[in-house]
Design a binder for these strands. Structure first.
Lengths: 192, 192
DNA sequence: AGGGTTGGCTAAGTAGATTAGCTTTTTACC
DNA sequence: GGTAAAAAGCTAATCTACTTAGCCAACCCT
């Protein structure tokens, strides 16, 4: 019996891709094994169990999303950076809905969980975008929470097919980002 | 053997309460049966299966949330109505996280699904709130999508424990709602 | 009182996750 | 090149949760 050449990383990657295709909640050890041309118990040589697998997908998602936002905002500032970050995040969720869902369902398992730095890095990138608006320090956390809420909410509703009307969703998204942009600009300390 | 006096409605209600307590994804037929003092198979006299049960919870959640938003906005308009609707929605999700999660995971099963009118009614209440801002008709859908995204995103992140910093979450919420309020006011047709 | 319906139960079937234990391949080192 | 340990696959078996079948008691209605 020849070997399949698997490893924790390749199994996680395959699972993430499968989750994107069939939906995170449909992911199972059996389906993943079939996809990899292997019997189900063999997966346990590379991953502790299903919870461990989904956690690894979550970490992967956070790292990738952090990279995407960072790359998109490189060399941009203010409104440009905000629009780029928002579009990058939305694009990632649309392309990788299963990974993103895994990321949302994950809880840190301990103080050394790699999920923590990954999430921190993503938040840092969003913070950097907001820094361009020169908000009062006391308002920075509020603005960050608002930005996260809006992007997360929009992306998850969109991916779940929740926007019914046939009005263009792209248009709604840029409209929303613009509204936030104007709101943040009006709070900018340089305006006062 | 005495009877437990159950019915579809009371089983659904108990399941919803249990989901709020232990988390929607921890809900199981076994735990629900135990809670009701009954053996697992007995539940199938009142509900088709687990999918049916969660769907009923989803409908219940949408109806309750629709009621809550409607009640909160009664007799209010403009900024007051927005703030009331937002607080009502956030309060509902905090009090009933399991029900709300069920609502999010639900898909209509057909054209006669009671989930559809329930969801429509909720969206209608939010639309009514926005109507007070006298937006251009072409912008109404965008504003509704933004409002939904923000409220849904904030509530789900908060309930999942995603807001880490110790800055007061209430404050962030009202800050966010205020920002949106100002943004919508500046778009009001009466201003131009 | 008595027949039909309802709602509970036990027993059994199914699917998915997981563990145990065996065998083969690969690797590392002599 | 040869061999022993580690790694990676497999089959078989276990456990848990959902679900179905079929039985019997309790309730309702006249």
């Amino acid at each position: 019996m020849p070997r399949a050449g698997l490893g924790s990383a390749s199994v996680t990657e395959a699972a993430a891709t499968l989750a994107d295709e069939i939906g995170f909640d449909q992911l199972s050890m059996g389906l993943l094994a079939e996809r990899l041309g292997v019997k189900t118990p063999s997966l346990y040589k590379h991953v502790d169990n299903l919870a461990d697998l989904t956690h690894r997908i979550a970490v992967l998602a956070m790292v990738e999303l952090g990279d995407a936002v960072r790359d998109a905002t490189q060399g941009r500032a203010g409104s440009d950076a905000l629009a780029a970050a928002a579009q990058a995040m939305r694009a990632y969720v649309k392309e990788h809905p299963g990974r993103y869902a895994a990321g949302n369902s994950a809880e840190p398992t301990g103080p050394d969980d790699p999920l923590i730095p990954a999430a921190t890095r993503l938040l840092g990138s969003l913070s950097a975008v907001l820094r361009g608006y020169q908000l009062q320090p006391s308002e920075e956390v509020h603005a960050l929470r608002m930005l996260r809420s809006m992007l997360h909410g929009f992306a998850t509703i969109e991916v779940s097919g929740g926007f019914q009307f046939d009005t263009d969703v792209d248009e709604s998204f840029t409209w929303m980002v613009n509204l936030i942009d104007h709101g943040l600009q009006s709070l900018s300390q340089t305006d006062r």
